[in-house]
Design a protein around this nucleic acid. Structure first.
Length: 296
DNA sequence: CACCAGGCCACAG
DNA sequence: CTGTGGCCTGGT
């Protein structure tokens, strides 16, 4: 027999997506840094809520958020098959789709996305994860989850901008600390920034993001894709550079990665893949090690 | 101990 | 305008 209030245990909700979803691929492909899989269940924090999701036989069993949030967050409100079939003339993308079909681009909070991808520069995923957790612990609101474990929301712009430069550096951000420090201050002083960028056409929004310190072409493209749902965005990282050279003969990974080289690869991809180029990028990125290992 | 990881910035030519 | 080093930190 158990003691303790059963009312504290959240009701598990069920949702059955009508279109393809690969939850494992979606939450582990590297677009997000705050989800962990324990047993069969994914646990994460999004917009100040602790959420669990388990996928079983196509059904989603979830706690901590509404169905509307789940659908929006996982981008289940879109014609996924139509996006994928738009790539049907490209054998490489279809290879990737066969491996991780149902991979979704999650609708991230633009602010969290912005800071996260500033941290992500020149780092690997475990390191990025630690930096972000440190920031959350330092300035994020504590959330007591039903399992009794305290997690932390991603700090608001106001909260993050109260930290000193040294406190941010203490979150193991290294040379990225001044970028986060200055960008947080700028955003905190300008609450309408996200609405403004959301309304801008792609290239203009891109330029507007690159005004913030620590945000270059790669980070801007990630934020436009993951934070602003501008799906024509095609972020080019060192992996994508290698892959695009190998599959399409674009660019040359032997030479130094100049801004001109970035533009060449990005323009080609946006033209070649079309308005959902970002989805092509995510599918290629999801199986990046296969290309490194010489498969495909 | 080198070298690199989902780059950006300051500075030289 | 284009190209090259250096950079915090942590893992091979």
């Amino acid at each position: 027999m158990k003691d303790g209030p059963s009312a504290a245990v959240p009701e598990v909700m069920v949702y059955e997506p009508v279109c393809p979803l690969n939850l494992d691929a979606t939450l582990s492909c590297g677009q997000l840094f705050r989800w962990k899989k324990r047993e069969d269940t994914w646990e994460g924090v999004a917009d100040s809520r602790f959420i669990t999701i388990r996928q079983d036989c196509g059904s989603l069993y979830y706690t901590g958020c509404s169905e509307a949030f789940l659908i929006s967050y996982l981008h289940l409100d879109c014609p996924h098959d139509a996006i994928v079939s738009g790539f049907s003339c490209d054998a490489h993308i279809m290879d990737a789709v066969r491996c991780t079909g149902g991979l979704r681009i999650v609708r991230q909070n633009p602010w969290e996305c912005l800071i996260s991808y500033i941290c992500a520069q020149n780092a690997n995923i475990p390191f990025i994860t630690r930096m972000i957790e440190n920031l959350c612990r330092a300035a994020g609101k504590p959330i007591t989850a039903p399992d009794g474990v305290v997690r932390y929301a991603f700090p608001t712009p106001e909260a993050l901008s109260t930290l000193t430069l040294e406190e941010i550096r203490g979150c193991t951000l290294g040379y990225r600390a001044p970028y986060v420090y200055k960008t947080a201050a700028a955003i905190a002083a300008d609450p309408a920034w996200a609405d403004r960028i959301r309304e801008m056409p792609f290239e203009e929004a891109r330029r507007a993001l690159m005004v913030y310190p620590g945000i270059g072409p790669k980070v801007a493209d990630c934020v436009l894709l993951f934070g602003f749902q501008k799906y024509e965005s095609f972020p080019v990282d060192t992996w994508m550079r290698m892959i695009m050279h190998r599959l399409y003969g674009i660019g040359d990974p032997e030479k130094s990665f100049t801004p001109a080289e970035y533009e060449r690869i990005r323009r080609f991809a946006q033209e070649h893949f079309g308005p959902y180029a970002g989805y092509a990028q995510e599918y290629l990125f999801a199986i990046r090690t296969s290309y490194a290992d010489g498969k495909f």
